[in-house]
Design a protein around this nucleic acid. Sequence first.
DNA 1: TATGAATGAGAATTCATTCAT
DNA 2: AATGAATGAATTCTCATTCAT
Lengths: 224, 224, 224, 224
Amino acid sequence: MGKTNQRTRSAQPVVQPKGGVTRQPPVTTRGARTRKALVDAARVVFERDGYPDSRLTDITAEANCSTGSFYTYFDNKEEIFAAVLEAAKEDMMHPGMEHVDATDDPYALIEASNRSYFEAYGRNAKLMGLLEQVASIDPQFREVRRRRSAEFIERNARGIANLQQLGIADADLDPRMASRALSAMVSRLAFYTYVLDEWGSLDDLVFTSTRIWCNALQIPRHKN
Amino acid sequence: MGKTNQRTRSAQPVVQPKGGVTRQPPVTTRGARTRKALVDAARVVFERDGYPDSRLTDITAEANCSTGSFYTYFDNKEEIFAAVLEAAKEDMMHPGMEHVDATDDPYALIEASNRSYFEAYGRNAKLMGLLEQVASIDPQFREVRRRRSAEFIERNARGIANLQQLGIADADLDPRMASRALSAMVSRLAFYTYVLDEWGSLDDLVFTSTRIWCNALQIPRHKN
Amino acid sequence: MGKTNQRTRSAQPVVQPKGGVTRQPPVTTRGARTRKALVDAARVVFERDGYPDSRLTDITAEANCSTGSFYTYFDNKEEIFAAVLEAAKEDMMHPGMEHVDATDDPYALIEASNRSYFEAYGRNAKLMGLLEQVASIDPQFREVRRRRSAEFIERNARGIANLQQLGIADADLDPRMASRALSAMVSRLAFYTYVLDEWGSLDDLVFTSTRIWCNALQIPRHKN
Amino acid sequence: MGKTNQRTRSAQPVVQPKGGVTRQPPVTTRGARTRKALVDAARVVFERDGYPDSRLTDITAEANCSTGSFYTYFDNKEEIFAAVLEAAKEDMMHPGMEHVDATDDPYALIEASNRSYFEAYGRNAKLMGLLEQVASIDPQFREVRRRRSAEFIERNARGIANLQQLGIADADLDPRMASRALSAMVSRLAFYTYVLDEWGSLDDLVFTSTRIWCNALQIPRHKN
DNA sequence: TATGAATGAGAATTCATTCAT
DNA sequence: AATGAATGAATTCTCATTCAT
């Protein structure tokens, strides 16, 4: 195959205690390949064994590399878990309900938002379960979860405030508190459905959550 | 940090190595005293260190007894955690909204139910956080949590069905799905507020959750 | 054999980070026996392999106990080395030249002091070499060495001051600086002779060091 | 902390695995530049971290070259340490008291010799401390130290013998033993002062050591 | 010459559980 | 019932050295 030791970008050393350097991003394509193999392997192992029961050696074995190579790219299990989360970030994205227009159908908008949330959650169910697990154990990932949910809540809160300004939503509700409550509802429904594998189908989820959401905000249903 | 000596979790046979049976309840008063000391100590240690990071020897030290004594009453950490949960059960009880009468004010009823839920949760916040943690790790306690939440959901579902029959609640909603959604919302609000210590005051919680709950079911507000 | 679990003294727990306890002195005679076996084994292993090249497992193997038992009594290699040093303390004691009387023969006194120093050093040569080695590596033992040599220097300084007051010793010398210099000379002679195994016999050492010491202080030689 | 990957020290064969020979001096100027950068870096790292705690990668990082390049010039840590010592050799030179003339003032001569010794030691204190450290660990450098001190002792012994022949010094002392004792005194004073940073000023050191030295040899003080 | 990724043997440490007293 | 010492499997992490490019 081609050159593997070829540089892909310039080294940027970072100072650490004792004058060492933090694990640097790989400089060669070979390095990038190994790093990716490790991240992919880690996801497989974490999803299979759970975070606390997974061993670093399982990850390196799965990635077909030596234990030492792990430490070329990561300092410890937390760090590679963060990398796994990072790698899956894209796919876990989902549109919100932020910008509502007077001409939009708010019911349809909320429904679409909920559906895409559930779909993204379902696609990454194992990983979401893992995040719950790790967050319950490690404050660092509690913070990751907090940031992610805060972003989601924020977006929904803006949507709710928007609807209130358009005179479509119950003005008595504090948009942030309402968003927290309804977002918590949606995410917990997803968790119980996809991670714990209890509770109904996607359509049931979407219907119920959307109906409750709209009722809760007292959004007039266009038809039906 | 990592558990190294951890036995892979698996159902424990009831029959013990030397032909014994699962730990019997203590017969002497001295025995009962020691057992209670251990359970109390375990709660302290679990709440302080978290379940995975707590050591059996920390528990016995806190209980002022020897390591060996632990095994007189419990087989392992799971078992004493179950005992801790059992001991706190009473205090974690909370009334539901099950039986609604035509003459009752459903809004007030739901509000009271929510308030008492949040209050009970707040009283045992550390323990509830622990249960979340352990459930994310150990299937046995996933099941404990499932049973508890199922009971709560069941009760609320009956309440919702009841209101629907009285013609007070949105008949389009499936009572069980609606109960799952709204119960998930309430419990998750409680978790974020009392365990993670984010989000508002008790009154805000009660107001928002009750308002959403009633709006969601489309219960007419008589006054206010 | 007799009871081994018999208590020898009351437990005195010491609070540590995370609420644990520091390694406690053994409570039973069995425990005391094991601890002693470990300390003895450690001395053997350290003297054989040197401190940096010795492994904890070599120590437990030599002591015929499990790796785990090591941690019942010590936290790490430094701690057991300190225990080895402590155990040998008695035997490394040596009289000084502190209290000189007008009727004493100062030459004989200094000679006796030097001889007993060399003898004690010779008896524990391996251990003294070890202390030099560890002190060069670990600040904690640098401090141990400093304290021991400071004590020796102090004693000799008082002896010198004493002789000066009696009008027997060169009054121009600062007793502390002189003591440092002469004590350093003696201890380094011992090191080269007994640890590195170069340089002469005990008698040569005693003669030369005593003669230099007395000349240096300008102590009149009564005879010989 | 502990060295885990440490190869047990043993004499290295001159012939290398692939039929090569020990590292040749660099032929190109670029090579010479890299080699010098490594030696300089090594001194920095050794002085900063101590010999046992320094890593080869720290040295290459400090020298701004790759890990691989290290092995172009050196076989291992010992070898580069030897090179560091070699590079500093010049600066650590100091005149002795070898050739005394009947017309010389022996007191002044000894004083000058001592002063220049202390000054050289002080200039290279960190490195001298390092040599003590490495000598305590590695027989190869024990031998380096031995040779250096033997040379110093030899020179001083000749000086003492010289003075004895001139009838100026105590004839009872064996010149070699006396030199060992007095040289040990001087070098240990320097070590405690400059490496461990205890004990007085240069002038105090020079005064005390010279006075003791002269008293010890019973050299008549010309004046004062 | 220079590069930097890959290697893997080896040591420290933990703690649930057993068991002799 | 109580005690507390003993056990040892299991896992993480290190870093000198090699070698393909």
